[in-house]
Design a protein around this nucleic acid. Sequence first.
DNA 1: CATGTCACG
DNA 2: ACGTACGTGACATGA
Length: 565
Amino acid sequence: MQAEIVGISFAIQPGEAAYVPLAHDYEGAPAQLPREEILERIKPLLEDPARVKLGQHLKYDMNVLANYGITLRGIRYDTMLESYVLDSTATRHDMDSLALKYLGRRTTHYEEVTGKGAKQLGFNQVPLEQAGPYAAEDAEITLCLHRTLWPRLCEQPRLRQLFEEVEMPLVPVLSAIERNGVLVDVALLRQQSGELLEKIAAIEQEAHQMAGEVFNLGSPKQIQNILYNKLELPVKAKTPKGQPSTAESVLQELALEYPLPQLILEYRGMSKLKSTYTDKLPELIDPVTGRIHTSYHQAVASTGRLSSSDPNLQNIPVRTAEGRRIRQAFIAAAGNCIVSADYSQIELRIMAHLSNDPRLLEAFAAGEDIHRATAAEVFSVPLEQVSAEQRRSAKAINFGLIYGMSAFGLARQLGIERGAAQEYVNRYFERYPGVKQFMENTRELAKQQGYVETIFGRRLYLPEISAANAQRRQYAERTAINAPMQGSAADIIKRAMTDIHHWLQQSSLAARMIMQVHDELVFEVTRTDTDNLCRQLKQRMAAAADLNVPLVVDVGIGENWDQAH
DNA sequence: CATGTCACG
DNA sequence: ACGTACGTGACATGA
C-alpha cells in the first residue's frame, strides 16, 4: 500500500534484460527519466489485456502499480504460482530459490545490494551500478524460470488447468481484497485494551501473592520455576525440549487441584487478546486509507489454502465471548453493513462426495444436522433422542475423521478411555463403511503414487508415506487423509471468490470483498444492496463445485463482523 | 533466532 | 517403546 516505484525491469528473451531507473535519489545519482511521465507512457501497455505478461509474485506488482492508478492486465503466468502448483510442499517459492533449484543459477539477493537490518537502504539509495544488474537479472531469471516451469505444467493437464483456472485468476482478486482493506473501530479497541490492562494487573497481583514472590507471568521459564520448583506441583507433561510444560492442557489439569494455574490461564488469555489484537490492530491502520490491509499468501500452505499476515486476519478470536468482542471492532463504513457467508460443513461434505458413503450422502441430501445424524448412527438411537453429550462426541468423531484420527487423539479430545474411543471409531466405520473404504483407498493410493489429489487435481506429495520411521509414516498417512478434504475446500472457495469478484465488477452493486477465512467470505456492502448480495452469494458459492451432496452456504448480516456471524 | 504458547479454520 | 488429529501466523521471552 505504501511502496513507491524506483525503477522497472523487463526481459523479452533469455540472456537479455533492461532496467529503467526512475527514482534513485542518492547523493550523486545520475539524472533519470521522470517517473510519472514514464508510467503514463507505458500505462496502455500494462493495462492492455491482450499484451501477455509474466512475472514472479505478480500480486505485488499489481498492488504497487495500483498505487499509481494503473490496473495491470494480461497477467498470464506467475512463476511463483507455477512452482506452487507443481509442488506445494516445496519450502520456498521465492525467485532466488527457484533459480537455484530449476536453473542452477545463483542470483544476487536483495539484501546483497541493500544491506540488512537497521542500516538497510531503500532501493532508491542503491547505486545504479548495482541496481541495474540486480533488477535486470530479476526479469531475465523470471523469464527463464517460466520457460522451464511451464512445459512441466503442460505435462500434467490437471495441474495446468488448476493453474490457469484457479490460481492465476485469483491473483487480481486477492490484490483487490488486500487493497479494499477492513475498517476497524479504534475507539472500541482502545477501550478494550484499557479494560484488559486493569484485569491483567489484578490477576498479576493475586498471582504474585499466591506465589509469595514477584515474577513475570508472561515467561514460561519463570512459571516453570514457580510451579515445579517452588510450589512442587506434579509435572504432567514435558515440552519437546524436555522442560516441564506449562501449556494450556497441563494448566487446566493442575487447576483442578491448585489455584495458581487457573490464574496463569486467565492471564495468558487476556494478554494474548491485548498484545496481539486490541493493542496491535490500531497500529496497523493505513494512514492514507484509514483501513487495515492484510497480505494473503497464495504459495505458502501445502494443502492449497491461503494464509494471511501483517496482520493475520484469519485468526481473529471467535471461540470465547471475550475474544468475540474483538470482532465487534471490525465494522462497516457509514451506510454500509458487514455480510459474512460461510460454507456449512464443507470438509465433511467433501468427505461424503469423495467416499460416496450412502448413509453420509443421504444425511446431507436430507439436510440433517450432520453431528446429530452421526450420533444417532454411532449410538444407535433415533435422531430425536440424541443427547447433547452424544452429539458432542459425534462432532469430535467427525472432526477426527477429517484429521486422520487415532483412537488416542479422540480419547484425549473427549476425555475418555482409549478403549471407549476405539469402540466409537469401530461403530462409526460399521455404520459408514464407505468412509472406511475411502480412508483405506486413500492411504493405499498415496503409497502407490507418492501423492494425493484434491477434487480439482491439486497435488500434494508425501515422500514419507513409505518411511521406515513409523511416526513419520503415520504422519504422512494422516496428511494423505486430510489434504484432499482441506485442499478441495480451498479449491472450491477460490473458484467462488473469482466468480464473485467478476460478478461484482460487472454489476452495479456497491459491495466489496474484504476478507477470506478458509471457509468464509466477508463483504462490506451498502445497505440497499444487502439482500441482493446475500442472494447471489448463496447461489454462487454453492455453485462453485458440483458434488454428490449439496453445498450449503450460511449468510449473516450485521453492523460488525461479530453480528454478521 | 529458538522456544513455548495460543489465536483461527 | 514412543508419540499421536490436519493446516497456518504472531507474540513474549531470553540467549
